[in-house]
Each structure stands twice: as structure tokens, then as C-alpha cells.
């Protein structure tokens, strides 16, 4: 069943409402990882390894640092897996929050930054399929829409900060902008995106609960 709310399509995954007599068991990878299931850990790496590797390569200046970082991230995920609460955040949100924290700490520790060029010429099937899966996540597609609504300069500022891990000072130097301007714009745009997520979540909640 699919609901369309102001062009935002949200898939309702509860098959039981459709009268499906064999209810789908949602795999909670993280709880299996927390319980010491090696196959689940491998699935976790297969599912999110490319994403985290891609982002780590953008944050950190060389492959060795990115390699250290990604190992630390997966160890942290393993250790934190027991704290995952699907009522508070989706699996991808939980994982990317932990990954971000580690990458920011690593960046601070190493105190150097370089954007790396992609070594791949084309999108591999593996990455293509994983990107497609991510795009199907309602919250992520909402955020992508919100990001695309920003003007180009604001998108660039946010991308340099959030996606590529540059500090505000580095961004100010790169783009030849006053530091105060960079801080204000990033902050305002983050608040815009946050408010947009809240607004849509509230509308969906109200829709379901009348």
C-alpha cells in the first residue's frame, strides 16, 4: 500500500494490513550482531561497507587512515548494536550517526584533509543496487528532496561540511567567504532540513492517527 502525501511517497510495509497470512519477519541485523552472530556482522558489512568506505575516503587524507577509520566504525557498530532501538531511529540513521562521530573524531585526530578522486570509472552493480536501496528509504528520499531545494551555494556549503568533513574555517578559505557567513548559512540550512523532516513526520503521524 502506498500513500501519497504532497508528492512524498511512503511505502507501508505492514503486509498484515493487506491480509497477508504469512507475516514478514523484519530482519533486525543489529540485534543479531549484538548477540554475536557472525553471519549478521558479515551482512552488515555487505550492506553498508561501500557507503561508509565512500564517505571515509572523502573525510580522510589517505587510504591507511580511511582503513583504520572504517575498522573502528565497524567495531563501534558491533559494540553499540545492542543499543539500537528501531522506534527511535532507522537502522541506516543509527549506523550513519555512529560512523559520522568516528570520522569527525578521526579528522580531528589526524588534522589533515584531502578530497580524493574516485578510482572507479563507472558505477558497479553492487554500488548501484545499494544506492537504489538507500533511495527507497522514506526519510532519506525526503532529505534528498530537501537538499535539492536549497540553492546551489548552500548545497555546496553543506556538502563540504557534512559530506566531506571540512571545518567551517577551511570552507571559508576554500570559498573565500567570511567565517561568520559560512557558520550562519550552514546552521540555517541544517535547521531547515531538520524542520522539514519534523514537519513531514508530524503530517504522516497525524494522517495515521487522525
Amino acid at each position: 500500500m502506498e500513500l501519497i502525501i504532497n508528492n512524498l511517497s511512503i511505502k507501508d510495509n505492514s503486509d498484515s494490513r493487506m491480509g497477508n497470512t504469512s507475516p514478514k519477519v523484519h530482519e533486525n541485523l543489529l540485534s543479531k550482531v549484538a548477540n554475536g552472530n557472525p553471519e549478521a556482522f558479515e551482512k552488515l558489512i555487505n550492506k553498508y561497507g561501500n557507503l561508509i568506505w565512500s564517505i571515509a575516503r572523502r573525510y580522510l587524507s589517505n587510504q591507511d587512515e580511511a582503513e583504520d577509520a572504517i575498522q573502528e566504525i565497524f567495531v563501534a557498530l558491533w559494540q553499540s548494536a545492542g543499543r539500537f532501538d528501531p522506534n527511535k531511529a532507522s537502522e541506516i540513521t543509527f549506523i550513519s550517526m555512529i560512523a559520522r562521530r568516528r570520522l569527525i573524531d578521526n579528522l580531528r585526530k589526524n588534522n589533515k584533509h584531502k578530497v580524493l578522486k574516485s578510482i572507479e570509472d563507472s558505477l558497479s552493480d553492487d554500488v548501484f543496487s545499494q544506492k537504489s536501496n538507500l533511495e527507497r528509504n522514506a526519510e532519506i528520499s525526503l532529505v534528498v528532496r530537501a537538499l535539492k531545494k536549497l540553492d546551489i551555494q548552500d548545497q555546496e556549503l553543506l556538502s563540504l561540511s557534512i559530506y566531506q568533513g571540512y571545518s567551517h574555517l577551511e570552507i571559508a578559505k576554500l570559498l573565500n567567504l567570511p567565517l561568520g557567513t559560512v557558520k550562519t548559512k550552514i546552521r540555517r540550512n541544517l535547521m531547515k532540513i531538520r524542520d522539514e523532516i519534523k514537519r513531514v513526520n508530524t503530517r504522516v503521524k497525524n494522517y495515521y492517527h487522525g
Binding site: 558489512i45 561497507g49 561501500n50 557507503l51 561508509i52 568506505w53 565512500s54 564517505i55 575516503r57 572504517i70 531511529a89 541506516i92 540513521t93 550513519s96 550517526m97 560512523a99 559520522r100 578522486k117 574516485s118 578510482i119 572507479e120 570509472d121 563507472s122 558505477l123 558497479s124 553492487d126 554500488v127 544506492k131 538507500l134 533511495e135 526519510e139 532519506i140 532529505v143 534528498v144 530537501a146 537538499l147 535539492k148 553543506l158 556538502s159 557534512i162 559530506y163 541544517l190 532540513i193 531538520r194 523532516i197
Partner: peptide, 23 residues
Amino acid sequence: FAKTTALSQIGFYLMDDTANETL
């Protein structure tokens, strides 16, 4: 703001056509 930034990071990853790296 942790959730907003985490989701935005993934959003940018999806919008980045050069993000093709495989682990």
C-alpha cells in the same frame, strides 16, 4: 541535530555521481 546531519550525509552520497567506491 545528529540525525539530520547523518541523513544529509547519506543524501549527499546519493547525489554524488562520483561516489562509486567499493570497499
